[in-house]
Amino acid sequence: MQTDAGAAPGTPPALDGGAFLRVRGLTKYFDITGGLVPRLLYGRKIVHAVEDVSFDLAEGETLGLVGESGSGKSTIARVIARLIPATAGEVTIDGHDVLRAGPDEMKVIRKNVQFVFQDPFSSLNPRMRIERLIGRSLTIHFKMNPAARRERVIELLEQVGLRADHIYRYPHEFSGGQRQRIAIARALASEPTMILADEPASSLDVSIQAQVLQLLDEIRQRLGLTMIFITHDLNVAEFVSDKVAVMYGGRLMELGPTEEVLQRPLHPYSQSLIEARPHFGKRERLRPLEGEPAIPINPPVGCPFAHRCPIRIDDCTKADVPFVEKSPGRKVACIRV
């Protein structure tokens, strides 16, 4: 594959078919064997957290990555941002080969790709005042002098709905919603082109969650950011994303335009996920899917969802299920569809 490593800023690399983010065969295993003795006694234990994931995202698009805990959705984001190393695969962001970038190129990628974490109580250094907490990014990426830095931090704070005098405070002096606003301001400081958000609002109260979502959405639109938004909440995914990817057991089950996936899910897992969601004005009984997701430790071949699937056949567990395009932009990993 050819990539436009030297693309000028603003010109999308043409040879990738317009994809701003391109993920191919991304795989991440964790070895949880726990030392030599257990290894000799029980063999290796490998968690297949992310298995052979591929997708594209165009510039300015938002992908909602949906799945339950343990599905590998957070791990994907961390691997894409290279916060943890990948086991295999390829990630290209705006022409940069993320997983093989040297220190200089990595600096550019760090500037362009920012992360918003789930828990605003643990993602902010408790010993830094807000000015420094947000300003570090400005020092690192723009070498700003203290006066300019302060001015810019205040500007960023005001953009996220906080006040100038907040720069003197420490994180513990803020509520959860305010802290998440600070985390967003920190992410915006380096003027990124892409944001990876890992359940940024799910630890917050309903009314505060809505404020944070609204803010993120407004910023995304205004700055034309490309975004991966990880969530377990289908309402949230529906609200923020252009495309939705459904994950289960480390693999993508279904990918497509938000409306289509959530209104007319093709994969039996997506269907059961959507049916399990409580609804207003739907007082009839829930029809939950039985069984629980298995942690993919040394998983067998085949579809990870097969053990819970209502329409499984023997072939589902005989070979890995390919992730194939069913209609333009719509991919499903199911042999029954």
């Binding site: 809505a210 404020q211 979502l213 609204q214 959405d217 529906e238 609200f239 409306e259 959530l262």
Partner: peptide
């Protein structure tokens, strides 16, 4: 109104 819905602007409580 704080519950996100597709195609509708959020109007959260301030």
């Amino acid at each position: 109104r704080s519950i996100p819905r597709r195609g509708q602007p959020l109007t959260p409580i301030a």
